[in-house]
């Protein structure tokens, strides 16, 4: 039975790329307001898993439910899920032919049919929150990586999602820009946003996460509070992985 107050629920999810078994019997519940960090070696299926949640990838068996809607081939269901779920990518993926402000107002205007002026007000408010409102009329190519990623976060927030997915949001950034993005994410977590975050920032995981999920070879190997998982890992694979990232 999926947990009743779970806003995201994956049950026995399997995914293959051709004959390659990328996700094996993944089951995971995320409560409202829970902050989940997903860690694991490269190729372990972290991206694949969170991309299945908003149907950027299709799973072949098992069920995924988001806010009570099952993610399936049904276009209406996928539309609803995507309206509830924001996503931030490693490569930012801002729209380079639109200004920062246009990047933010696009979805509210076209998907939610919000009046332009209102969408603009909301966009400016979120740009202020990520401390980038002076750049509203610039194009993404004129911003630094850290600024672009903050714009990408603001773009997702403009749709007022109840859940945010992050896929390695700081991995493409220079070290001095990582903090400005993490700060925004910490604030978001403190406000009670439900977050699923793939990241190698163990400091972020320790301070912010309620739950850390460790994946390897398409499976969830271990799931626990950060204190337990980092301090007292039970599985051999987890110990091995942790010793590697601590050594680095």
């Amino acid at each position: 039975m999926p947990n009743d107050d779970a806003v995201i629920s994956l049950k026995d999810v399997n995914k293959w790329y051709g004959s390659f078994h990328a996700l094996r019997d993944i089951s995971l519940d995320v409560r409202k307001g829970e902050r989940v960090v997903v860690a694991g070696p490269s190729g372990s299926g972290k991206s694949t898993m969170i991309r299945c949640i908003n149907r950027l990838e299709e799973h072949q068996s098992g069920t995924i439910t988001v806010n009570g809607t099952e993610v399936s081939n049904d276009v209406k269901a996928v539309e609803k899920v995507r309206r509830d779920v924001g996503m931030v990518f490693q490569q930012f993926n801002l729209f380079p032919h639109l200004t920062v402000l246009e990047n933010l107002t696009l979805a509210p205007v076209w998907v939610k049919h919000m009046p332009k002026a209102e969408a603009r007000d909301i966009a400016m408010r979120y740009l202020e929150r990520v401390r980038i409102h002076e750049q509203a009329n610039k194009y993404p190519g004129q911003l630094s990586g850290g600024q672009q990623q903050r714009v990408a976060i603001a773009r997702s927030l403009c749709m007022r999602p109840s859940i945010m997915l992050f896929d390695e949001p700081t991995s493409a950034l220079d070290p001095e820009m990582i903090k400005e993005v993490l700060d925004v994410m910490v604030e978001l977590a403190e406000e009670g946003m439900t977050m699923v975050c793939v990241t190698h920032e163990m400091g972020f995981a320790r301070t912010v996460a309620d739950t850390v999920v460790f994946m390897a070879d398409g499976q969830i190997v271990e799931k626990n509070t950060p204190a337990e998982l980092f301090g007292n890992p039970r599985e051999e694979r987890t110990k091995q992985f942790l010793s590697q990232i601590i050594r680095h």
Partner: peptide, 17 residues
């Protein structure tokens, strides 16, 4: 790039949008 399609999907645009 594929990321442009994915970002458009993720913010909820329809195929034609």
């Amino acid at each position: 790039p594929r990321g442009q399609y994915e970002a458009a999907d993720a913010i909820g645009l329809s195929y034609w949008q």
